[in-house]
């Protein structure tokens, strides 16, 4: 499992690996927002947490279809399926590598982009905390969606359609935590709920992902 994780990380930083694409996308979306809604701080400050969360979510979505598609095309997936590591482990490793290459950089950069949106000073730490807790869930849910659509031509759009509704609870609680952090009310409840979603996803979704992979490899 560690070997698979390391290989995927190595592939992502090699040529054509797509590392940083999500990050660039995140940056562009966030920078575009003020052009759309106007430079007024009165507008930007309250919407900053939501914009950052939605942009992070879309950036994570962007790279989901690569999770299994490349391994499917070059035939690695059936070889992994007959290897001694369980497919559940493959699913978990794929989700973790997606998080490291996409979710983690997004989490680190998000507070920086908060400046561009005039985010309330109290919100930065909670933005970091909520993304740190919530981004792994986005990767795991996305891995599940990628497993459902792995064999399909033009599966990318379908993947977004399937995954977006599943992202809603994480997004709601995550952005809510930042908003509450911004106006100084209690952030514990939404943060804990984000954490619960992440834990629940990592406990259950590897099995669903492996089941979907087995069906698709048949």
């Amino acid at each position: 499992m560690i070997a698979l994780l390391l290989r995927d990380l190595r592939l992502s930083v090699r040529a054509g690996g797509g590392f940083g694409l999500g990050l660039a996308f995140f940056l562009i979306v966030v920078v575009l927002v003020p052009f759309g809604v106007g430079p007024d701080r009165v507008i930007l400050t309250p919407i900053a947490p939501g914009i950052l969360w939605v942009a992070a979510l879309l950036a994570a979505l962007l790279s989901l279809d690569r999770i299994f598609a490349l391994d499917f095309e070059d035939g690695s997936l059936p070889l992994l399926a007959t290897a001694p590591i369980p497919l559940e482990g493959v699913a978990l490793s794929k989700a973790v590598s997606h998080w490291i290459t996409t979710g983690l950089p997004l989490t680190c950069v998000a507070p920086l982009l908060g400046f561009f949106l005039n985010m309330a000073p109290g919100a930065y730490v909670w933005l970091l905390a909520s993304l740190a807790l919530g981004a792994p869930a986005l990767s795991m849910i996305g891995t599940f969606g990628a497993a459902l659509t792995v064999g399909l031509r033009r599966g990318g759009l379908l993947l977004s359609l399937l995954v977006l509704p599943l992202y809603i609870p994480t997004l709601m609680f995550g952005a809510e935590a930042v908003r509450r952090g911004a106006d100084g009310s209690g952030v514990t409840a939404p943060l804990m709920l984000v954490g619960v979603i992440t834990l629940g996803c990592f406990a259950l979704l590897p099995f669903a992902t492996a089941a979907a992979l087995r069906i698709n490899l048949r």
Partner: peptide, 10 residues
């Protein structure tokens, strides 16, 4: 199979 799971970037 014919597809041998070779990663061209490695």
């Amino acid at each position: 199979s014919h597809a041998d799971g070779i990663k061209s970037a490695l």
